[in-house]
Design a protein around this nucleic acid. Structure first.
Lengths: 124, 124
DNA sequence: ACTCCGGTTCGACATCTGTCAACCTCGACG
DNA sequence: CGTCGAGGTTGACAGATGTCGAACCGGAGT
């Protein structure tokens, strides 16, 4: 919220030059905005489970109709959470026939993982 | 309660048996709560930069008096954000002399990084 | 003891977020 | 064409969150 920024629907993944562990170098203020949005998207139990279900889908993709019944929430709410994940650049949606399929975008996930990387305690 | 002035109450790090990439196995609903709280703590540009400054501190720790002037925010707000990071189990605070020093807790960060781990694209 | 200073906590406020009900859009199928 | 179902959008609402000013606390100096 410290960043009112008129929402940018399709996240500029290229505008995030981040690839250095935050333990090695301070993350630039500009990158922090985009990266924080991704973390915020994962900062909800429902979305974290949704993201997990999508990322661990056997075929690399999963239908919304398989996601919704996994929670005791209205379809509207699930749709809202999926939209957040979409706008954060974490997942991609594709409409096929009558159903919508979601798949993970490993790029951003990898960036976040790199950002969180910590030196192994063994290495001095 | 023999907790010092700067307390870091809850968060059961041991209660989070998570260590499997979310792309391999669906994260359990119970773990999702705690893990999501950690992600949420990082889901703010200010906190992400704070976390980064703490984690990348040369001596492994950094004084609040070095953190506050790095932002155009009141000390109150910085203190609030630091509290969020503390309660998420991401950082630890220690009062020494007149100043309070923060240091990163690599344990949870490593868990989050593992959770986000993605198979290398080399395997097609 | 008194004061000054760094930092947390408290109280208050505006804004954002999660949730649902209702409606709308797009394909599929008669 | 007309209907139906999946699911995304809108509007509305309670509750959470970010921010600040004021009050408070714990040491250091004087």
């Amino acid at each position: 919220m410290s960043k009112p920024a008129v929402s940018s629907p399709p996240i500029d993944l290229d505008a995030v030059p981040c690839c250095t562990p935050m333990a090695q170098e301070r993350v630039p203020a500009q990158a922090a905005g985009v990266l924080a949005q991704a973390f915020k998207a994962l900062g909800d139990p429902i979305r974290l489970q949704l993201m997990s279900m999508i990322a661990s889908a056997p075929d690399g993709e999963i239908c919304v109709c398989d996601l919704t019944p996994a929670f005791t929430l209205s379809g509207t709410t699930i749709s809202h959470h999926l939209k957040v994940l979409r706008e954060a650049g974490l997942v991609d949606a594709e409409r096929r026939a009558s159903w919508v399929y979601y798949r993970a975008r490993p790029g951003l996930m990898r960036q976040l993982a790199t950002l969180l990387a910590v030196e192994e305690p063994a290495v001095a």
